[in-house]
Design a protein around this nucleic acid. Structure first.
Length: 491
RNA sequence: GUCCCCAUCGUCUAGAGGCCUAGGACAUCGGCCUUUCACGCUGGUAACACGGGUUCGAAUCCCGUUGGGGACGCCA
């Protein structure tokens, strides 16, 4: 059996990391089995549509390296003003992949249901329904449609919706790939609207119809869909269609343990990009929330291919997981350090514009080892870019270094450096060591003072390399600036 | 309120009845390396929510309690 999975987001805002994790798992499952992964846009809620949301979805998927085999192509997106260069030029034969373009299909299927008595029209106004609901709540009854139009046999009309007729007694079970058998014995469900008065389907109808016609074999979605799964099962049965495998994923939680959502602690993917998180690291980290390779294997860092190879539904966890930014940062550092110097420089590009190329070349490997996210490059190379260097002067002084000694250090070092013909890491290092040997000053007195003099900071890349990157002229200049600063320093 | 799901270190997890004195990773604390910081290496603190069963034996199976989450829309 060919595995076909899909990611079916609604373009009602920016999709957060939880949604993309669902997409990733679906993609992983399809790729692993040589199947297809599709993108379907569920734009049936006309009121909440957000312009640009579809483009954001397509761009983000591409950024993460999740490419879809079937879905809206460039022309489709252009037609609705959501063009993305990252969409495929051609993709898929069971489209359209945008639900607003499949209206006639849904309407046709609904007619079938109505003619078979499995669905009916309803003209109850939403205002009336709302009042009804409030009253029920007030009476502490379970809220829901009363069933007023069930037997009225209403003809098609301007203001009508179509409801799916649910059995009076529902007892059914389903074998979820994550949770095993789940049984419902009379769940609190009322006849749901499947076709709205504007002619658009609701999720229940559209997703079932599309999953069927698009040949979806595994439905991966968030566990918020679990309570309404009986509706979907009943719909499959009403249509006489084969059901897919359901895979209800546990939620990604915010720091407070509540479901991550657009309104709650979630960031758009572009935020991570801006924060200098690599897509590979994000993908890898997020894959670990709710999934583990298991079987005693303790691997956590996976390449994309390893993920495709090792992913399995069995490794999916049924409990929700908190998103831990600290671990993401750590993993990003791991990925950053594994980069070739060429690739690292390429990614660093936007942060090093004011740094001389030669200096960057010298300092880059040391910066690479020290950062967890790209923007941290800035603080590491600041001393190479700035003319007017801010210095953490207070870091110079301690019980071993007073103003007198500090001045002595910069003076001796400057003198020594002047006599070094060619600056290399070795010659600089040797010069520094000679200062220590000849002046009677201690290493712990010399290096910290020079570090502040040259870089302004107490935590920096290695001193000799930093000095080499700065160059002899500027180094001597910075040393020369020190006596006045030392003198002026007040605690 | 009703229904559904979930429950191992602070966090992500391993664990499919004896391999568990519960393993790993992040975070945290300490040591080593070292001119700082970082990397790396190394050691430590730290968990089976509770109560009943079942069993020779339970983190693992069953029931209940508690706690958390989710759903109850002409939203998805």
């Amino acid at each position: 059996m060919t595995v076909r999975t899909r990611f079916a987001p609604s373009p009602t805002g920016f999709q957060h990391i939880g949604g993309f994790r669902t997409a990733m798992y679906a993609w992983l499952l399809a790729k692993q089995n040589g199947g297809q992964f599709l993108l379907r846009i569920e734009d049936t809620d006309r009121e909440r549509l957000v312009p640009g949301a579809i483009k954001y979805l397509v761009d983000s998927l591409h950024w993460l390296g999740i490419d879809y085999d079937e879905g809206p192509n460039q022309a489709d997106l252009k037609a609705i003003n959501e063009f993305s260069e990252f969409a495929p030029v051609e993709a898929g034969k069971v489209g359209p992949y945008i639900q607003s373009e499949r209206l006639s299909l849904y309407q046709k299927e609904v007619e079938r249901l109505i003619s078979e008595g499995k669905a009916y029209r309803c003209d109850c106004s939403s205002e009336r329904l709302e009042i009804e609901r409030l009253e029920q709540m007030a009476r502490r009854e379970r809220p829901g449609y009363s069933g007023y139009c069930r037997t009225r046999n209403l003809p098609a009309g301007a203001k009508t919706v179509v409801r799916f007729r649910l059995p009076d007694q529902i007892k059914l079970s389903m074998n979820d790939a994550v949770r095993g058998v789940i049984t419902w014995d009379n769940p609190p469900l009322r006849d749901p609207v499947i076709l709205k008065s504007d002619g658009f389907p609701t999720y229940h109808l559209a997703s079932v119809v599309d999953d069927h016609y698009m040949g979806i074999t595994h439905v991966l979605r968030g566990e918020e869909w679990l309570p309404t799964t009986p509706i979907h099962i009943l719909l499959y049965e009403a249509f006489g269609w084969e059901k897919p495998v359901f895979v209800h994923l546990s939620h990604i939680l915010g720091p407070d343990g509540k479901k991550l959502s657009k309104r709650h602690g979630a960031d758009a993917l572009t935020q991570y990009e801006e924060q200098g998180i690599l897509p590979e690291a994000l993908l890898n980290y997020v894959s670990l929330i709710g999934w583990s390779v298991g079987s005693g294997d303790e691997q956590e860092v996976f390449t994309r291919d390893e993920l495709i190879q090792k992913f399995s539904l069995d490794g999916l966890n049924s409990s929700g997981g908190v998103f831990d930014p600290a671990k993401l940062q750590w993993m990003n550092g791991v990925y950053l350090r594994s980069l070739s110097s060429e690739k690292f420089t390429e990614l660093a590009n936007k942060y090093i514009t004011s740094c001389p190329a030669k200096s960057w070349e010298i300092i880059a490997p040391h910066v690479q080892e020290r950062i967890k996210t790209l923007p941290e490059i800035i603080e590491n190379i600041e001393f190479l870019c700035l003319n007017d260097l801010p210095r953490e002067m207070n870091a110079i002084f301690n019980k071993n270094v007073n103003k007198e000694i500090a001045k002595q250090v910069v003076e001796v070092v400057a003198q020594k450096f002047s006599s070094v013909a060619v600056f290399t890491v070795d010659s600089i290092h040797k010069a520094l060591e000679e200062v220590v040997a000849e002046s009677g000053l201690k290493t712990g007195q010399v290096f910290p003072v020079v570090r502040i003099a040259v870089t302004g900071k107490k935590a920096t890349p290695p001193l000799s390399e930093s000095i080499l990157a700065l160059g002899k002229e500027k180094t001597l200049q910075r040393l020369a600036e020190m006596p006045a600063l030392i003198e002026a320093y007040q605690e």
